[in-house]
Lab assay of single mutants.
Amino acid sequence: MASQGTKRSYEQMETDGERQNATEIRASVGKMIDGIGRFYIQMCTELKLSDYEGRLIQNSLTIERMVLSAFDERRNKYLEEHPSAGKDPKKTGGPIYKRVDRKWMRELVLYDKEEIRRIWRQANNGDDATAGLTHMMIWHSNLNDTTYQRTRALVRTGMDPRMCSLMQGSTLPRRSGAAGAAVKGVGTMVMELIRMIKRGINDRNFWRGENGRKTRSAYERMCNILKGKFQTAAQRAMMDQVRESRNPGNAEIEDLIFLARSALILRGSVAHKSCLPACVYGPAVASGYDFEKEGYSLVGIDPFKLLQNSQVYSLIRPNENPAHKSQLVWMACNSAAFEDLRVLSFIRGTKVSPRGKLSTRGVQIASNENMDAMESSTLELRSRYWAIRTRSGGNTNQQRASAGQISVQPAFSVQRNLPFDKPTIMAAFTGNTEGRTSDMRAEIIRMMEGAKPEEMSFQGRGVFELSDERAANPIVPSFDMSNEGSYFFGDNAEEYDN
């Protein structure tokens, strides 16, 4: 993207840094990872977990959730003011799984939030270390993106479920800051804005008074975040219109849905970061690795190297396929839920299948599930090659597409044709070009129609051997075009429920 120079890199967003050079960025990201790792080690000690239990991804998720809940100030305040039966607002906890007599047992633990905050700050040299908290939120978000298709949420806001490739980060909490905003897809931002506008339509006082002023500035800020994701002048001009509207209503909703559809071809720039579970960072720190000293990046080879040398386990339900569970977590670790499966298959070195073909449910185990038949197995999170994460949407291309997802959002900077089903997408653009945004709409449609099938995206960008740390010898991959490109292809993934 041309304006790259004016933006802070995501590592800076990730670490609240002012302008830093590459070495400083690597050190501050490393410091953040160190903090998460030290916190995780301490929690495993508190909970008396064995090494194996500490490497269980379900335990990692519970521990991450506990610290996120302990620092969720708004919710904590709300819980104190609106006490609900049987919930102690000062405590947080969740299921911890232990191996007892050759069987997995679930144990519900409860801790004072104050105590968890103390352990977290102690692991982070006394700081609140917001960057580390956001990092864990993005890992949870990436896992949700890989596990669930947001059909219901899309339909509720009037969008087409086939636009799911635009929904990265749709389950990120509001408090995820600049680093969170960077990884949100165009569809996620559109959905947040539509929800806001709908509230304004239904509630006369939404934009009024002292609160209304705050609401208005939040609305304009979200519009600017979305505008910054678009790469064409016409899309940005249309966002200006939406932002400046005196009284946002149905016309703005129409414009936003139009823009979301246009992003299936004229893709937005959305950041991709490899955020790993805390149970990967903990053992690495415990083994003596100093992330701050060595430096770390979320968008280069580092996460690949770390996963190459990590042992992570997962509980497996009786009829689940461990290899499929591994694929789910591998995609989440690489922030690749909406990437082209052919690119992923090449990088991973084994075939990556669409969601609907995987015999696996989510990673988390519900409290009512029976533990008797639970097994555990090693997650295979290694890769054959590594590639640089991208934040450009890439230019655009036609490809055989599917009944489910009709476009992709690249996660890796790797040369390819970008699949999208042009006739299906263009069919949504018939007729409606009147109104105050008509010239911009016409211009956007013209650009979409001009998108050429034979153009290559990320020209000359390749993948790298894991021994090639400096990215000196790019390998331009070859793809098996007979395979499906979309992950949520004609899909039956479970729906995400809060």
Results as ranks from 00 to 15, higher is better:
14 E>W: 07
30 G>A: 04
31 K>Y: 09
35 G>M: 10
38 R>K: 10
49 L>W: 06
50 S>R: 00
63 I>S: 03
69 S>M: 06
69 S>T: 14
82 H>I: 04
84 S>L: 15
84 S>K: 00
87 K>I: 04
88 D>N: 05
104 W>I: 10
105 M>Y: 00
109 V>C: 05
113 K>M: 13
118 R>Y: 10
125 N>I: 13
125 N>P: 00
129 A>M: 00
137 M>A: 03
144 N>F: 13
147 T>H: 10
156 R>W: 07
160 D>R: 09
160 D>P: 14
165 S>I: 08
168 Q>F: 10
175 R>V: 14
176 S>Y: 05
176 S>G: 08
181 A>I: 09
202 N>A: 00
203 D>H: 07
205 N>Q: 05
211 N>T: 15
221 R>Q: 12
222 M>A: 01
225 I>W: 12
228 G>Y: 10
231 Q>T: 05
231 Q>H: 01
243 R>L: 01
255 D>K: 11
261 R>G: 06
267 R>K: 05
269 S>V: 07
269 S>I: 07
270 V>Q: 04
272 H>F: 11
273 K>F: 09
276 L>H: 12
278 A>C: 06
278 A>L: 06
283 P>M: 00
285 V>Q: 07
290 D>M: 10
293 K>Y: 10
298 L>D: 10
302 D>Q: 01
306 L>W: 11
308 Q>R: 14
309 N>F: 06
312 V>K: 10
313 Y>R: 04
325 K>P: 11
332 A>H: 06
334 N>Q: 07
336 A>P: 01
344 L>A: 13
346 F>E: 03
346 F>S: 05
349 G>K: 10
356 G>Y: 10
356 G>M: 10
363 V>H: 09
370 N>F: 01
372 D>L: 15
373 A>Y: 04
373 A>G: 01
379 L>D: 11
387 A>T: 04
390 T>Q: 14
390 T>N: 01
392 S>Q: 06
393 G>M: 10
393 G>F: 10
406 I>C: 00
415 Q>M: 02
428 A>R: 00
429 F>A: 06
450 G>M: 01
454 E>T: 03
454 E>M: 08
458 F>V: 12
465 E>Y: 08
466 L>S: 15
469 E>M: 10
482 S>L: 07
486 S>C: 02
488 F>C: 14
498 N>W: 13
